[in-house]
Computed example of a mutant assay.
Amino acid sequence: MALILTVNAGSSSLRFALYEGDTRPAALLRGRVEGLGGSDPRAHLTPERDFAALSMAGVVDHHSAIRALCDWLTENSLQHRIGAVAHRIVHGGDRSGPAVVDDTLLAELEELKSFAPLHQPHGLDAIHALRKPLPYCPQIACFDTSFHRTLPAVARRLTLPHSLADRPLRRHGFHGLSFEYIASSLPARIPNAQRVIVAHLGSGASMCALHHGRSVETSMGMTPLDGLPMGTRSGAVDPGVLLWLLETRGFDAERLGNVLYRESGLLGLSGISGDMRTLLESEDPAAQEAIDVFTYHCARTLGSLVVALGGLDAVVFTGGIGERAASVRADIIRPCAWLGLRLDPAANEDHGPCISTAGQAPSIWVIPTDEEQVLALQAMQLIGP
């Protein structure tokens, strides 16, 4: 049986998995390389016993991590067993679903690099790199933006002159693979929940309002820079601030981009780290201030999404912070008590799955996301088992 390889290139990580199955793909192996671009990147394989280790010799960035993945496939004699490769591509423009990669699609996606500079180049690099060892294997691009194709017109429009309303200049939304996984899991877990807010909180963070499992509003806009403050990304900033930096501080586009994408968010607020785990362990008041700003914006965004839904049946936390940081969840929910949201402290410390008080509506949940599962399923549905 042919395997499906999934590749998920994040801003500082590379995750991959191998799946098999005719109708519902099952993971044989999951791997991740973390800390890319830092001083000590590390690899993890689950399970470890059935495969040779992934060599980290010379791995410092995404390029070298992808080369290491290609070498690992060869060392484990897997390249001839793979029937398709499914890639997470953050920005798909107006694409409404997954697509087999060809040169035309690659050129289209290259033009979107500037909309997602922390992710799009790495995703496309992985496609180019895996074409060589797997020349006859279809590469499938699966887009984060596609899930939000159901946004209503009023949510898609930017408040710019009509003459600037070209197709790329609209709100797209991101983290769609994660939101799609959560939406698919809701009928089994919360069957009567029709109006659900999902908070995907990690180094990148966004929230989505689901109505009957469909995206009707989200916190990110045209780029994954918008919305909530993140690990190193600013989130929403008054455009007047950007004009002021350009006009009075002599910033050019490159400097401004570095500040917004790499020097802001939790890192910029705290001056310590963009990693929530480090901030939670710190006794520095600046760390707590950064956490407070983050949770304030999350709570405020949650409230606005309730308006888009016309009510609320459930809140779901997912992503690295959302799944593992109990105190952050508590700080977000506390100011939302007026919505009827009540945490069960013990359940919250145990990370759920249901963390609201018994019988409480709206309910609150922690559901681990699985973007790789969605990648494999989309590839299987596109090309068949």
Rank of each mutant, 00 (worst) to 15 (best):
M1Q: 09
M1R: 08
I4T: 14
V7C: 10
V7L: 11
L14E: 02
A17C: 04
L18A: 14
P25I: 04
A26S: 15
L28S: 07
R30G: 15
R32G: 07
R32E: 03
V33N: 07
V33H: 06
E34W: 04
E34V: 12
L36R: 05
D40L: 09
R42H: 11
R42A: 15
H44I: 12
L45Y: 06
T46I: 11
T46F: 08
E48K: 06
A52C: 09
L54E: 14
M56A: 11
A57R: 13
D71Q: 14
L73H: 12
T74G: 05
T74S: 08
E75H: 05
N76P: 02
N76S: 01
I82R: 01
V85W: 00
H91A: 08
S96V: 14
G97C: 05
A99H: 12
V101Q: 04
D102V: 08
L106S: 01
A107C: 07
E108K: 15
Q120M: 02
L124V: 11
L124A: 10
A126F: 11
I127E: 05
I127P: 04
I127Y: 10
P133W: 07
L134R: 13
F143M: 01
A153P: 01
V154G: 00
R157Y: 10
L158C: 07
L160I: 15
L160T: 13
P161M: 02
G173P: 02
H175M: 05
S184R: 15
P187G: 01
R189E: 10
R189S: 11
P191E: 11
N192K: 14
Q194T: 13
V198A: 07
A199T: 01
A205V: 07
S206R: 00
M207V: 07
C208T: 14
M222P: 04
M222L: 14
D226G: 15
D226Q: 14
G227W: 03
L228E: 04
L228D: 03
M230P: 02
G235H: 12
A236P: 00
A236C: 09
V237N: 09
E247Y: 05
F251I: 04
F251C: 13
F251S: 07
A253R: 05
A253S: 15
V259F: 02
V259T: 08
V259M: 14
Y261M: 02
R262D: 00
R262A: 02
E263M: 13
S264N: 00
L266H: 07
G268N: 00
R277Y: 09
T278N: 05
L280R: 09
E283G: 15
A290K: 13
T295F: 00
Y296N: 02
Y296G: 01
Y296H: 13
A299H: 00
T301I: 06
T301N: 09
L302V: 12
G303Q: 08
S304W: 03
L305E: 12
V306H: 03
G310H: 08
L312F: 12
D313V: 14
V315L: 08
T318V: 06
G319D: 08
G319R: 08
G322R: 03
E323S: 01
R324D: 01
R329S: 04
R334K: 15
P335K: 00
A337L: 10
W338R: 14
W338A: 12
D344S: 06
A346N: 12
A347Y: 10
H351M: 12
P353E: 15
C354T: 06
C354R: 12
S356G: 11
A361W: 10
T369F: 04
T369Y: 03
Q373W: 06
L375D: 01
G384Y: 06
P385E: 13
